[in-house]
């Protein structure tokens, strides 16, 4: 049973077709990197998975359950989208931490709000909140920030902020964790610490979709690499297949430009 299956996703902005009939699927624990030049549709694809954009056509399945179908208006309802969204986590290029909350509060906030919807919330409030707090502390420890839990975002470096953002995304236990160029906004000396965290998640068999410009990292961490160009998945395969035994001329061009 595939963890994620994307079928025939199409998306246009005005007259510009950004995604053209995108289909792919991935297994539990698989790590997919999506590479390609700016404007190729990588980010839009990720945003469609997280319902930040609505595909014009297509279907999305998580563990064989249809969570989006452009034909079925019911799957487009706000409340339904909110629920289905929780299958995915998203780490943004620009972190987007909430500035008025500490690192720990950032990780806890969404869990606290969701817990309020639980029928047993009133009865077990204390216990639930303690669990949420412990979970947040563990996650921050896992990304190497146990000393920084009570710091506000502006007191943290970019790399630290991005690690908090990763912990925040993990807090809701998503089935599939997505990264949108997680190191593009970072100084070169700070990318390493973030990539290390993502690598450790891959080692723990977290299902991940990573849009990245870090080719060496993509090579190292992914099970499969998708090369996107002009709204299409032009080439896909293991890192070795895509990077070393490249089939498509366009992919070769792209990879060559990066090494020049």
């Amino acid at each position: 049973m595939p963890a994620l299956e994307v079928k025939n996703i199409n998306k246009s902005f005005g007259n510009i077709s950004v995604l053209k009939d995108i289909s792919f699927s991935m297994e539990q624990g698989e790590v997919i990197s999506i590479i390609g030049s700016s404007g190729s549709g990588k980010t839009t694809l990720l945003r469609c998975l997280n319902f930040l954009e609505t595909p014009d056509v297509g279907q999305i399945f998580v563990e064989d359950k249809c969570i989006f179908n452009s034909e079925d208006k019911k799957s487009l309802k706000d409340s339904q989208i909110r629920k289905n969204r929780l299958h995915f986590g998203l780490v943004f290029q620009s972190f987007n931490l909430f500035p008025q909350y500490t690192a720990k509060q950032n990780v806890m906030l969404a869990c606290e709000l969701l817990a309020k919807e639980r029928p047993d919330y009133k009865a077990n409030k204390k216990q639930i909140l303690t669990e949420i707090e412990q979970n947040a502390e563990e996650l921050l420890k896992r990304v190497g920030l146990s000393e920084r839990m009570d710091n506000y975002p502006h007191q943290l470096s970019g790399g630290q902020q991005q690690r908090v953002a990763i912990a925040r995304a993990l807090a809701l236990k998503p089935d599939i964790l997505c990264f949108d160029e997680p190191t593009s906004a970072l100084d070169p000396e700070l990318t390493g610490e973030v990539l290390k965290v993502i690598k450790s998640l891959a080692d723990e068999k977290t299902t991940m979709v990573i849009v990245t410009h870090e080719m060496d990292f993509a090579k190292e961490v992914s099970d499969r690499v998708l090369f996107m160009d002009d709204g299409l998945i032009l080439e896909q395969g293991t890192p070795q297949e895509v990077f070393e035994n490249t089939r498509e001329e366009r992919t070769k061009q792209f990879l060559k430009k990066l090494t020049d």
């Binding site: 997280n50 319902f51 930040l52 909110r82 629920k83 969204r85 929780l86 995915f88 986590g89 998203l90 943004f92 620009s94 987007n96 931490l97 909430f98 906030l109 969404a110 709000l113 969701l114 925040r168 995304a169 809701l172």
Partner: peptide, 15 residues
């Protein structure tokens, strides 16, 4: 307020 703040809230399942 940057759009990213709204989007971060959305992907975390907030109303």
């Amino acid at each position: 307020i940057p759009r990213g703040q709204y989007e971060a809230g959305q992907v975390l399942g907030m109303t």
